[in-house]
Design a binder for these strands. Structure first.
Length: 230
DNA sequence: GACTGATCATGG
DNA sequence: CCATGATCAGTC
């Protein structure tokens, strides 16, 4: 078996899940070695390293393109750092939030909703201070929001987009939203986008993205792992 | 310790 | 340049 090249795309959901389950219990360092990838000493300058390595290992094809990681299956891959108890340590980036009035009015039409319709969560068990190569892949969860989760996300989306519509850009901060929140998303602090403010004037502000709070993701994972069919 | 705001790398 | 992959790091 030659692991150096990216794995071929999985032909079915079952094949993808099987591959993901086979990664459970393995160290990121081992998986990287099989792909002849260098393991960074820490992730300060390699924040997306685990996600990209796992994309390769699973045969994702859509890196850096605005389509799902597995386009034929309509599945998005998200690696998520969790502590040894399984609680996510970080929020999860979903997509950018347009501030120029171009965002869809309803949750169902939104880019965020579409991206979250089918997500393969791959927990990465990370103890405090543990080096990236020592971290262990956990149990994959293929998630589609259930009615309750969808309702929570929908309510957040509608209140956040209403705030964007009001044009109060100074108020577009991460404190709003139960599950979905708005956070800065840029290369650095000087990045900006144009936004329509409350007076209808174009103003500069930092780019924002939609993120899932760690508390929400934690509940999603815990429920699926406790009730594999529920 | 949790949370928000800031930041880093890569690919097309 | 922008979207994807996220985590860092200072503050509350």
């Amino acid at each position: 078996m030659n692991f150096v090249l990216p794995a071929p795309p999985p032909r079915s959901e079952e094949e993808l899940l099987l591959r993901a389950r086979r990664l459970a219990g393995r160290k990121l360092g081992e998986l990287a070695a099989e792909r002849r990838m260098v393991v960074p000493a820490d992730l300060r300058r390699a924040k997306g390293w685990a996600g990209m390595m796992l994309e390769q290992a699973l045969g994702a094809t859509a890196a850096s393109r605005a389509v799902p990681d597995f386009p034929d299956l309509g599945i998005e891959l998200k690696s998520i750092p969790v502590d040894p108890r399984g609680s996510p340590k970080e929020s999860t980036y979903v997509c950018t939030a347009p501030l120029d009035g171009s965002m869809p009015r309803t949750w169902a039409e939104s880019w965020a909703c579409r991206k979250l319709q089918r997500v393969l969560w791959l927990p990465i068990v990370t103890a405090p201070g543990q080096a990236p190569g020592e971290r262990i892949v956990g149990s994959a969860v293929l998630w589609t929001p259930d009615a309750e989760e969808d309702a929570i996300l929908c309510a957040d989306y509608e209140s956040l987009t209403e705030r964007i519509d009001l044009g109060e850009v100074w108020d577009l901060d991460a404190r709003h939203g139960v599950a979905l929140q708005l956070r800065p998303k840029g290369a650095h602090g000087e990045d900006f986008v144009w936004a329509l403010d409350a007076e209808g004037q174009w103003v500069q502000t930092s780019p924002r993205g939609f993120y899932l709070r760690a508390s929400f993701t934690g509940r999603v994972l815990a429920r699926r792992l406790a009730l594999p069919r529920g």
